[in-house]
C-alpha cells in the first residue's frame, strides 16, 4: 500500500463485510509524533481462532483462494516504524465487534504517509451508504471530524451516496483540514 489511507479503506471494508452498522475510524497523533490509527466496528466479530489467524499472511476467510493480506500489510506498515498492531474482537451477543488499532512512529524514516484520507472516507460512504461512519483526525495541530449519523438527520431520505452529497462531504472535510481545527460547521 502506498499510503496508510489505503490500509484504512481496506480494513474498514472488512468491517462492512462483517455486517457492521457503525464503523469508527480515528487517527490520533500525540505531541511526540506517535500516531494511533483505530478502526472499530459493531460487526459480527471473530472467534478467538480466527483472530489468531488474521495476522498470518496465509490466512483468509474466502474459500476460493487462501491468501488474505489486509492485516499483514497493516502490520508491516506499523512495525517498520517500530510500531505495532493490536486486534480485539468479540462475538458476544450484546457487544459484538472488532477493533483494530495500529501504532506508528511518524518520525521514523519508514513511516508511510497517511495520504488522501478524504478519498478513503468518500469511497467508504459511497460504497456503503447505509452504514454509519464516525471519523476523527486529531493531532496537536487539528481536529477534523465527520459523523454520518449527523448528516443523515439533515438528509432525511436522500442517500449519502448521492453525487452532490459526496461532493459536500469532500468539501466539508477539506475545509476542516485547511482550517487546522474541526467543528460541527
Amino acid at each position: 500500500m502506498k499510503e496508510l489511507s489505503l490500509n484504512i479503506l481496506d480494513i474498514a471494508e472488512n468491517s462492512t463485510s462483517a455486517g457492521a452498522t457503525l464503523v469508527g475510524i480515528s487517527l490520533e497523533e500525540d505531541s511526540k509524533g506517535i500516531l494511533c490509527m483505530t478502526i472499530t466496528d459493531n460487526g459480527r466479530g471473530m472467534s478467538q481462532e480466527v483472530l489468531k489467524g488474521v495476522q498470518d499472511p496465509f490466512y483468509t476467510t474466502r474459500k476460493t483462494r487462501k491468501v488474505g493480506l489486509g492485516i499483514p500489510l497493516l502490520k508491516l506498515a506499523a512495525e517498520q516504524t517500530g510500531g505495532r498492531v493490536e486486534i480485539e474482537s468479540t462475538q458476544d451477543e450484546k457487544m459484538h465487534g472488532t477493533t483494530v488499532r495500529a501504532y506508528f512512529d511518524t518520525g521514523h524514516i519508514d513511516f508511510c504517509p497517511v495520504g488522501d484520507v478524504i478519498s478513503t472516507m468518500i469511497t467508504l460512504i459511497s460504497g456503503h451508504p447505509d452504514v454509519d461512519f464516525e471519523f476523527n483526525d486529531i493531532s496537536p495541530r487539528r481536529h477534523v471530524s465527520l459523523d454520518t449519523r449527523e448528516l443523515r438527520q439533515v438528509l432525511g431520505d436522500v442517500s449519502l451516496a448521492e453525487y452532490e452529497v459526496l461532493g459536500w462531504i469532500r468539501e466539508y472535510l477539506a475545509g476542516q483540514y485547511a482550517q487546522g481545527t474541526g467543528g460541527a460547521g
Binding site: 449527523e150 448528516l151 439533515v154 438528509l155 432525511g156 431520505d157 436522500v158 442517500s159 448521492e162 452532490e164 452529497v165 459536500w168 468539501e171 466539508y172 475545509g175 476542516q176 485547511a178 482550517q179 460541527a184 460547521g185
Partner: peptide, 19 residues
C-alpha cells in the same frame, strides 16, 4: 467554510429526484 446549511440545501434539491 461549507456548513450543514449547504447540505440541507442539497437535500431540498434532491428529495424529489430520489424515487
Amino acid at each position: 467554510m461549507i456548513s450543514l446549511a449547504e447540505l440541507a440545501a442539497i437535500r431540498e434539491k434532491m428529495k424529489d429526484k430520489v424515487a
